[in-house]
Design a protein around this nucleic acid. Structure first.
Length: 812
RNA sequence: GCGAGAGUGGCGGAACGGCAGACGCGCCGGACUUAGGAUCCGGUGGAGCAAUCCGUGAGGGUUCAAGUCCCUCCUCUCGCACCA
């Protein structure tokens, strides 16, 4: 054992040893309790990992190592979310090819993870852009297709000019592309593939109740799904026998207050019903709405605009004809793309009616008879007024009455509407899994590629730049494009769009159970052993994309009888974001990125790991501060010194004092509990505290138990130094194969306690007594105190509260 | 606008309704040193010589006792932003 703690020296040595010993390779073992630990599938970016990313990987590693010591059979794998726009965009920017850059970047990530001592089972490494992986991504596409969950439809969809592709709704953030926050998305009409995630809306919602996820994430999913109950009703268009305006409303009770109707500008009825004299203004408005960037159109703060179509609808409740307008505050993608406007009860309709001088009937009044707030709609529930047969009913009863009324007369029905749309999965881009279908030219239509012909290989293209025409570059590859129909053998063309990258990450957690399996996406037996994931760790930014998609796929697999669980991630935790020292996001362009490489070089991997754990609560965001690494490096040097003293004294074998033993066991209890609850910062502070205590002892007072349990507890957090110290203590095998120290509550029990005495809520005295001293004795001792007497100032105690072994509170 | 979370020393942060500030950074003093940005020892919320008083964003409340529970407000962060 060296005199001085030299992190780099021992770290490189032990990392090589571990790799040689295959220490972290997982094997199925039905006799042992499994623990599947997983971090969210990382996209290996060219910038490599920063110390911010490590705030995810290091704590996970601690959990994995700790669970292993605690007797669990741990599966902790790693792989690469390699397909998708980020990888392709990066390669385009650098004039390189993603097939070259991605493996290189992944290697770099792997190197960095090893550099900081993270223990993964690298034999299970996967890469979603490799054919042996995306073959099964394609297989899942076909599964969804077979189950009627993948379909093709024409739609006006989000388009990012920089990515030159269509985006899913979830991938549009503040009206901009999720990868380009400076690029407003526009609309483009294309025929696209969708996954029918809305068919799972209710189950995705219900499933949230049974899983242990951070409440904010569940809430975000609930809001994203956005379930609303109401009714879908149709009002006939005056003078158009066949046509009606069908609309969804959550407030059918306000039908008597409907004074006009509004269609989305894209609504198919617009062309049909617009009268000749309104045609030019309507067409102009529709055209403008299409052109306008979504960021403008989506702003709730913007003043509402619209134009009259010249047509009227018949409101069967009021028996009046009401004007039909179009306005861009009505969205084609929600409900039926049309609304009944009840301006007295809906603030948006109110604003619109005010602006265009439309009638504003009042049909709901506050239930308590108070006057409604003037100048705005009364949107709350209340009592229905001026509404024929509904008058006098409370809102809830009126809703029910209208639903029954329209159902009886065939005017409409109860309906549920979701904010969530179907998941658009076509990408007009090169770097993704080709969608495995062909279009037969002899009338077979859309034909799925048979399972045994998978994978549909992504051709190796030199020029893979997106065309911008709305077709993927694969369309320019004749040998890819032209094929035979699997059904009739006739001429056919392949689908040239690729799958959204999120498809890859929707099932990867299953692949890790049997990453080289060839008879299916996963070996059912192995998947059955390892899954579901016991602890899933990742950033909150995936609340509505990856986490929703993965849940849906899992439910599809469950329905198909492939797996026995319906939720892939029963326990989810979010690590807090680490901001740069300047409080901004770490990014290369801002020049504020701190790399693990630099920190390991300067301080060592273990000190860096400890600082990642110690800097704050795992789930809270905080700013990077390099100074802290000095502290954890110093701490480890002191641990080193402690062990050197103990070993230097010949490893005295004597029993430690009861007091020392008590401290040791209390520390075991604290560290275990805090690691389990992912409170790494306080787990480490308990170890620091313990070190401060042990450092004050002579080697022969420490005792082997204290020293060894200390090294064992350090092992998950600082694996290299712990390994070195373990060997220095004379052990032959790895510290990481040892059992976690056993906590003995008997030995941890305090014999004496400090009791505080309060007078009128202020601490005036404290004394030490034996634990479990009878109440009467403690009370009398408290009252005997000179300080207590002084503060009582002669007054008799009115009341005395006694908390055993803790406090006496005297009220005077 | 709506929803969620958070405000504690100079800093990161501790604290089952029961001694606020554990642990660490920084700082101050000392020791050892040719040297110290190494190491070790001591100190460190504010005011006061002291007893003591004041202190967890602001203001109320509940309680013997509130950082913790309740109400009102302020600030910050995040999410959703015309979803009928």
């Amino acid at each position: 054992m060296d005199d001085r703690y030299d992190p780099r020296k021992i770290e490189t040595f032990w990392q090589a040893q571990w790799a040689q010993q295959n220490l972290y390779v997982a094997h199925e073992d039905p006799a042992r309790r499994k623990f599947y630990l997983l971090e969210m599938f990382p996209y290996p970016s060219g910038d490599g990992l920063s110390v911010g990313h490590l705030h995810n990987y290091v704590p996970s590693d601690v959990v994995g190592r700790w669970r292993r010591m605690a007797g669990f059979n741990v599966l902790h794998p790693m792989g690469w979310d390699a397909f998708g726009l980020p990888a392709e965009n990066d390669a385009l920017l650098k004039g390189l090819h993603p097939k070259d850059t991605v493996p290189r970047y992944a290697e770099n990530f792997k190197r960095q993870l090893k550099l900081v001592g993270c223990a993964y089972d690298w034999t299970r490494e996967i890469n979603s852009s490799f054919p042996d992986y995306y073959r099964w991504t394609q297989w899942f596409f076909l599964l969804l297709m077979r189950r009627g969950l993948a379909y093709r439809a024409v739609g006006s969809q989000w388009w990012c000019e920089k990515c030159r592709t269509i985006l899913a709704n979830e991938q549009v953030v503040n009206g901009c592309c999720w990868r380009h926050s400076d690029t407003p998305v526009t609309k483009k009409d294309l025929e696209q593939w969708y996954f029918r995630i809305t068919a799972y809306a209710d189950r995705l919602l219900a499933g949230l109740d049974g899983i242990d996820w951070p409440e904010p994430i569940k809430l975000m999913q609930r809001n994203w799904i956005g379930r609303s109950e109401g009714a879908e009703i149709g009002f006939p268009v005056t003078g158009h026998q066949e046509s009606e305006v069908r609309f969804f409303t959550t407030r059918p009770d306000t039908v008597f207050g409907v004074s006009f109707m509004v269609l989305a500008p894209e609504h198919p009825l617009v062309a049909e019903i617009t009268t000749a004299d309104c045609r030019s203004t309507v067409e102009e408005y529709v055209e403008r709405a299409r052109r306008e960037s979504e960021i403008e159109r989506l702003s709730a703060l913007r003043e509402k605009t619209g134009v009259f179509t010249g047509a009227f609808a018949y409101n069967p409740f009021t028996q009046r004809n009401i004007p039909i307008w179009i306005a861009d505050y009505v969205l084609m993608g929600y409900g039926t793309g049309a609304i009944m406007a009840a301006p007295g009860e809906d603030q948006r309709d109110f604003e619109f009616a005010t602006r265009y001088g439309l009638e504003i009937p009042v049909v709901t009044a506050p239930a308590d008879g108070s006057p409604p707030e003037p100048g705005r709609a009364f949107a709350a529930h209340g009592v229905t007024v001026n509404s024929g047969f509904l008058t006098g009913m409370p809102t809830v009863a009126a809703i029910e009455a209208v639903c029954r009324f329209v159902e009886e007369r065939g005017l409409g029905r109860r309906a549920v509407s979701y904010r969530m749309r179907d998941w658009l999965i076509s990408r007009q881009r090169y770097w993704g899994a080709p969608i495995p279908v062909v279009y037969c030219k002899s009338g077979c239509g859309i034909v799925p590629v048979p399972d045994e012909q998978l994978p549909v290989l992504l051709p190796d293209l030199k020029h893979y730049q997106p065309s911008g025409t709305g077709r993927s570059p694969l369309a320019n590859v004749p040998e890819f494009l032209h094929t035979r129909c699997p059904k009739c053998g006739g001429e056919a063309e392949r689908e040239t769009d690729t799958l959204d990258g999120f498809a890859c990450s929707s099932w990867y957690y299953l692949r890790f159970a049997s990453p080289r399996y060839e008879a299916g996406p996963f070996d059912p037996e192995k998947a059955n052993y390892w899954l579901p994931v016991d602890l899933y760790i990742g950033g909150a930014e995936h609340a509505v994309m990856h986490l929703l998609y993965a849940r849906m796929w899992t439910k599809v697999m469950y329905d198909a009888g492939l797996i026995r669980f319906e939720e892939p991630f029963p326990v989810l935790r979010n690590q807090g974001m680490i901001w740069a020292a300047d409080g901004q996001k770490m990014s290369k362009s801002k020049g504020n990125v701190v790399t693990p490489d630099a920190m390991v070089e300067k301080y060592g991997a273990d000190p860096l790991r400890l600082w990642e754990l110690f800097m704050g609560p795992f789930e809270e965001p905080t700013n990077w501060n390099e100074k802290g690494v000095v502290g954890t490096a110093r701490y480890l040097a002191r641990v080193w010194t402690l062990l050197r003293r103990y070993i230097g004294a010949g490893c005295p074998q004597g029993e430690p004092s009861p007091q020392t033993l008590r401290r040791v066991h209390r520390t075991i209890a604290t560290v275990s509990e805090h690691i389990e609850r992912l409170r790494f910062n306080t787990a480490l502070s308990a170890l620091m505290d313990e070190l401060n205590y042990l450092s004050g002892l002579a080697p022969e007072e420490m005792g082997r138990v204290a020293v060894e349990s200390y090294v064992l507890m350090l092992a998950p957090m600082a694996p290299h130094i712990a390994e070195e110290l373990w060997r220095a203590l004379g052990h032959g095998d790895s510290v990481h194969l040892q059992s976690w120290p056993k906590y003995d509550p008997e030995l941890a029990r305090e014999e004496t306690v400090t009791v505080v005495v309060q007078v009128n809520g202020k601490v005036r005295e404290r004394f030490t007594i034996d634990a479990g001293t009878p109440e009467a004795e403690v009370r009398s001792r408290a009252l005997q105190s000179e300080a207590v007497a002084r503060h009582l100032a002669g007054k008799a105690p009115k009341k005395i509260i006694y908390v055993p072994d803790k406090l006496v509170s005297i009220v005077a």
